[in-house]
């Protein structure tokens, strides 16, 4: 079953009065359990595509279906609630809440979902254990390395039990070892929990691990390669 389905998706920006096509007529279907990388050079439309699929940006034309629901017509509040329940995000700059500990950062998403304290506590601990940070629960972001912060971000993305995780350049700020560790974790979660991951990246390490690589150029799909 397709967790993400775009149909003739386009996004046009106005740049000093000149229309610029950031995403151009992209029709794509991503199935449950995929480990997909959206690649392409800078300005190819990877992030814009991911933002639209994540409900953070509205398309100029075309439709987006997530978990069988059209999200392009949703109102802002509805969309925020939808994101909370269906989509996990991992950002390039980690973007953890600096005043909360690693565990609180993970719990926070579940708090927004109104999960009970016991459930929040259990799942946050399990997730941080799963990303290898079981001994760093009480550390605040500034007490963690970049790689550790990004692993907390992955745990946070999974906390809400989303249908899929969108990761925008997740390894861009990491050294090789941290990047490999992170990819190991995400690959394992994909394999063990059937979690769908969609990356926008131009990191060859991510591309090498991806089961499917969609290449964008000038906003349009240039190639779509599935690996066994």
């Amino acid at each position: 079953m397709a967790v993400i389905k775009t149909d003739h998706l386009s996004r046009v920006y106005e740049d000093h009065g000149v229309p610029v096509k950031a995403v151009d007529d992209v029709s794509l279907s991503i199935e449950e359990g995929e480990f997909t990388a959206i690649v392409g050079p800078s300005g190819s439309g990877k992030t814009t595509f991911l933002n639209m699929v994540g409900g953070l940006d509205a398309p100029s034309s075309g439709t987006i279906e997530v978990d069988g629901k059209q999200i392009s017509q949703m109102k802002q509040n509805e969309l925020i609630g939808f994101r909370l329940r269906h989509i996990g995000f991992v950002f390039q700059a980690y973007n953890l809440i600096p005043v909360l500990t690693a565990k609180e950062n993970v719990e926070f998403i579940m708090l927004l979902q109104k999960k009970s304290k016991a459930e929040r506590d259990k799942r946050a601990t399990e997730l941080l254990d799963a990303v290898g940070l079981g001994d760093r629960l009480g550390r605040r972001p500034h007490e963690l390395s970049g790689g550790q912060q990004q692993r907390v971000a992955v745990a946070r993305a999974l906390a809400s039990m989303p249908s899929f995780v969108l990761a925008d350049e997740p390894t861009a700020n990491l050294d090789s070892t941290s990047a490999e560790n992170l990819l190991d974790i995400m690959e394992r979660l994909n394999k063990e929990q059937k979690m769908t991951f969609v990356f926008s990246t131009h990191d060859p390490r991510v591309v090498a691990r991806a089961h499917r690589v969609v290449t964008l150029r000038d906003g349009a799909i240039e190639s779509d390669e599935t690996r066994s």
Binding site: L56, I80, R83, L84, F89, N95, L112
Partner: peptide, 16 residues
């Protein structure tokens, strides 16, 4: 503001 952008992105309602 950047942090707020993230919070809203991950599902925090603006009212909260």
């Amino acid at each position: 503001m950047r942090e707020f952008g993230v919070l809203v992105a991950v599902g925090m309602q603006k009212s909260v």
